[in-house]
């Protein structure tokens, strides 16, 4: 039986047969089915609703003295909230943007009217260590901001990278001021 079927196909090889069509439809059906089942399996690995529900959090920051910062946890990551002194703000604003490794103005990294507050994700953009610099006694590097103890990257008081090997500025998370001393991150 199989031999007959194959001979039959061989005789009309160049044409597209009904059998070709059936094979194509069957294979596509199976592929779509497997794909439809594969997606829930893969998507179940994405963050679940309860994890996503933790993606915003509110913090009271009024008690931070000028010149110091605190570390809060947002989505399992450290976020630096730093109360900058007027001198630090002036220095940060005076930097020539064109000279920076990852050019960005100080204005673009803080909220207007709240220039004394710097909020950045405290993870070095080199290989993920947590830089020092929140406390006045910490090593802050040559630019008065943050110093990464792992490979010596340095950031200024605007969280911008000033000395490698880190390639990028510390990222600013989405946040908003609810009152003058209360912020919501995420």
């Amino acid at each position: 039986m199989s031999a007959t079927a194959q001979e039959h196909n061989a005789g009309h090889a160049p044409e597209h047969t009904k059998r070709d069509f059936l094979k194509l439809v069957a294979a596509s059906g199976a592929a779509i089915g497997v794909g439809a089942i594969a997606w829930p399996l893969i998507d179940s690995l994405n963050p679940s609703s309860d994890v996503l529900a933790l993606s915003s959090a509110e913090y009271e920051i009024g008690s931070i003295p000028a010149g110091q910062g605190i570390t809060v946890v947002w989505r399992g990551k450290p976020v630096f909230v730093r109360h900058r002194t007027p001198d630090e703000i002036k220095t940060a604003e005076g930097v020539k943007v064109a000279d920076l490794i990852d050019p960005a103005t100080d204005e673009s990294r803080v909220k207007a009217g709240h220039e004394q507050w710097l909020v950045v994700v405290g993870i070095c953009t080199h290989l993920g260590c947590i830089p020092l610099g929140n406390k006045t006694t910490d090593a802050r590097g040559d630019f008065g901001g943050y110093f990464c103890p792992c490979h010596g990257s340095q950031y200024d008081v605007s969280g911008r990278v000033r000395h490698g090997p880190a390639p990028l500025n510390l990222p600013v998370p989405p946040y908003a001021f609810l009152t003058d001393t209360r912020i919501k991150i995420g």
Binding site: P40, L41, S44, N46, S49
Partner: peptide
């Protein structure tokens, strides 16, 4: 059942 994506299905 409630929070994991497609957890109910799995």
């Amino acid at each position: 059942m409630r929070d994991v994506n497609y957890g109910w299905l799995l």
